[in-house]
Design a protein around this nucleic acid. Sequence first.
DNA 1: TGCGTATTCATGTTGATACAACAATAGTTG
DNA 2: CAACTATTGTTGTATCAACATGAATACGCA
Lengths: 149, 149
Amino acid sequence: MSLEEDIKQEKFENEFQKVAVNILYTSSWLHNLNADRLKAYDITPEQFNVLRILRGSHPKALMLADVTCRMIDKSSNATRLVEKLRLKGLVRREICPGNRRQVDISITSKGLEILTKTDNESNAWFGKLKNITKAEAQELNRILDKLRG
Amino acid sequence: MSLEEDIKQEKFENEFQKVAVNILYTSSWLHNLNADRLKAYDITPEQFNVLRILRGSHPKALMLADVTCRMIDKSSNATRLVEKLRLKGLVRREICPGNRRQVDISITSKGLEILTKTDNESNAWFGKLKNITKAEAQELNRILDKLRG
DNA sequence: TGCGTATTCATGTTGATACAACAATAGTTG
DNA sequence: CAACTATTGTTGTATCAACATGAATACGCA
């Protein structure tokens, strides 16, 4: 549906203002879709993101700062996110012996299992994004990257 | 900068996954920009959004449900958001005489003043989005609308 | 070595989000 | 009119985001 209908706004001042609102609105839409599908696994989208980051470096551990800088939303607190995941047994937390300030985080086999399960769904889920063509997806990515300049 | 650099991810599984991450990431970037510039006025981006919605209908009041359905993020709580704005004197809240369940919300002159001030900045602010051309902005809007189906 | 600074993470606090339950009023129907 | 249902907002609660501050360790240099 058009953004104008979705938020009952007849017109925007200019195309750039609409871009801003459209990105924020579409992001909220995506976030809600994602939160819904992850509810079955009892994890939040940001927790899921951290798990994926850790799978990306598996079996190597990452220090907390490395997790943070890979996160989509840098302002969420990696310490507490990781602690939530640890309590669920999905990640491991170890003080680095060589540098005792540092905490090494790695994904557990239970964490990997959850990701495997969601992978099976993910294709179906990305299907929801396939209202657009691959060429449009590429164009979207190009423009968003350029936007952030 | 490219998304890959921003979140240190070398590659995505496919263009659609990257679209999802890119929208979420760009939205977080935009939200932070917005929050920063609004800090000088002591309002949050969602409060700002409500003020703009009310200016859109000014001088007509809107009932709470109408505010909600125009909001970018439908899940934030309009009752409490409006109460915050009321305490700052930026909106008025009146029980509708014709239907006492209903609450009519309208923007005050003080609320309008704040928007006038931000308007003066807004052009400068939208300038940050002008890494892209108007044609690209239109294309971005088209694809985002299509994406949400 | 010892002192100042930088790095890395944790914690405290305030306000926002997510979701469910509740309350009050209005409309509807036998 | 009395009971039922729908509409419209409010409130409670747990969790999360945003931001500032604090604590422990490591590093650099006189």
